[in-house]
Amino acid sequence: MYPEINTLVDELHRRQISTFLVTNAQFPEKIEMLRPVTQLYVSVDAATKDSLKAIDRPLFGDFWERFIDSLKALREKQQRTVYRLTLVKGWNTEDIDAYSKLFSVGKPDFVEIKGVTYCGTSATSKLTMENVPWHSDVKAFSEALALRSQGEYEVACEHVHSCCVLLAKIDKFKVNGKWFTWIDYEKFHNLVASRKPFSSVDYMAATPSWAVYGAEEGGFDPGQSRYKKERRHKSSTD
């Protein structure tokens, strides 16, 4: 992690710029010393030691211990915390039970589950389009994972175009049957400026109806214009 990360975070907040930080869960001590950010992600690319080694090809021999310690460090953070899961069909889509066991380690506010994006062939990647899950696959995985949480998490939001689904902690972000998974950025910056302790519930905002899981809009803001490109591929006989 960048050694001057706290200085950078302070400067961004001074300029009223929100901070979304993603870590690969290999530097737990850096997570511990990190000052409050708007949202802190940990990439949970696999749920077992063997699969993590195969997918991430880690640099450190004690990569699994670093991974678990990073999740434990995340648990101590008071601001918004997220497990980020990238689903790769044929690699990690069958590890639902193992993933659910990691919930108790880091106790994240949210679990973001996204299908892998295929970026073409390369010498360093064996992925093909066959490894890219459909949104229906991501939904099925997310629903099964929520069930494994025994009422702690629930599927809250989705964005079909991004092939992404969000689980949220029910006791913190579902108030009187309504989700509050969005961020009040002005309140966050005011809380940072106050220099007083605060938590993720102090700057949560109501989730728009179009972003709630199962909404007809599928996560698309109806106030924005959507453009669909017509693809006219030539057939092999042309």
Rank of each mutant, 00 (worst) to 15 (best):
residue 86 T to E: 04
residue 76 E to H: 08
residue 58 P to N: 05
residue 118 Y to H: 08
residue 130 E to H: 05
residue 131 N to S: 02
residue 96 I to T: 08
residue 69 D to C: 09
residue 72 K to L: 13
residue 106 G to L: 07
residue 66 R to F: 14
residue 50 D to V: 05
residue 129 M to R: 14
residue 66 R to W: 14
residue 56 D to I: 00
residue 67 F to M: 05
residue 63 F to W: 05
residue 79 Q to I: 08
residue 87 L to D: 00
residue 110 F to M: 03
residue 128 T to G: 11
residue 94 E to G: 05
residue 133 P to M: 01
residue 70 S to W: 04
residue 83 Y to G: 06
residue 73 A to W: 09
residue 62 D to K: 11
residue 100 S to W: 03
residue 119 C to P: 00
residue 114 K to D: 07
residue 63 F to K: 03
residue 79 Q to G: 04
residue 117 T to V: 14
residue 103 F to P: 02
residue 102 L to I: 09
residue 128 T to Y: 06
residue 109 D to W: 12
residue 53 K to Q: 03
residue 49 K to R: 15
residue 73 A to T: 13
residue 116 V to G: 00
residue 53 K to V: 00
residue 112 E to G: 02
residue 121 T to L: 11
residue 82 V to H: 09
residue 76 E to L: 10
residue 106 G to D: 08
residue 70 S to I: 07
residue 97 D to F: 06
residue 77 K to E: 13
residue 59 L to Y: 10
residue 98 A to V: 09
residue 117 T to F: 12
residue 65 E to G: 09
residue 55 I to F: 01
residue 69 D to W: 03
residue 87 L to W: 00
residue 135 H to N: 14
residue 119 C to N: 10
residue 62 D to V: 13
residue 90 G to L: 03
residue 50 D to Q: 08
residue 126 K to P: 04
residue 83 Y to A: 07
residue 131 N to Y: 04
residue 105 V to Y: 09
residue 109 D to S: 14
residue 85 L to E: 00
residue 131 N to I: 06
residue 53 K to R: 06
residue 53 K to S: 02
residue 103 F to I: 10
residue 88 V to F: 03
residue 62 D to I: 12
residue 129 M to H: 05
residue 67 F to E: 07
residue 120 G to Y: 10
residue 57 R to E: 01
residue 54 A to C: 00
residue 111 V to I: 15
residue 59 L to A: 10
residue 125 S to D: 04
residue 132 V to F: 06
residue 78 Q to E: 10
residue 136 S to F: 01
residue 109 D to C: 15
residue 77 K to G: 11
residue 104 S to F: 12
residue 54 A to W: 01
residue 101 K to G: 06
residue 59 L to W: 06
residue 49 K to L: 07
residue 125 S to C: 01
residue 78 Q to M: 07
residue 69 D to V: 03
residue 82 V to C: 11
residue 70 S to R: 03
residue 120 G to F: 11
residue 75 R to F: 02
residue 127 L to K: 02
residue 99 Y to I: 08
residue 133 P to R: 02
residue 76 E to I: 04
residue 95 D to T: 04
residue 101 K to D: 15
residue 69 D to R: 15
residue 106 G to T: 10
residue 49 K to F: 02
residue 79 Q to F: 05
residue 81 T to I: 08
residue 114 K to W: 07
residue 129 M to K: 15
residue 129 M to C: 02
residue 119 C to M: 14
residue 128 T to W: 06
residue 116 V to I: 12
residue 98 A to G: 09
residue 129 M to S: 09
residue 136 S to L: 06
residue 56 D to Y: 00
residue 86 T to P: 01
residue 135 H to V: 15
residue 77 K to P: 09
residue 76 E to A: 08
residue 122 S to V: 10
residue 66 R to K: 15
residue 125 S to Q: 01
residue 114 K to G: 10
residue 59 L to P: 00
residue 112 E to M: 05
residue 123 A to T: 08
residue 83 Y to K: 02
residue 99 Y to G: 08
residue 95 D to N: 09
residue 54 A to Y: 03
residue 78 Q to H: 08
residue 108 P to W: 13
residue 76 E to C: 02
residue 57 R to K: 12
residue 92 N to R: 04
residue 65 E to D: 15
residue 75 R to A: 15
residue 61 G to M: 11
residue 81 T to F: 05
residue 84 R to S: 07
residue 98 A to W: 06
residue 77 K to N: 12
residue 121 T to M: 09
residue 121 T to S: 13
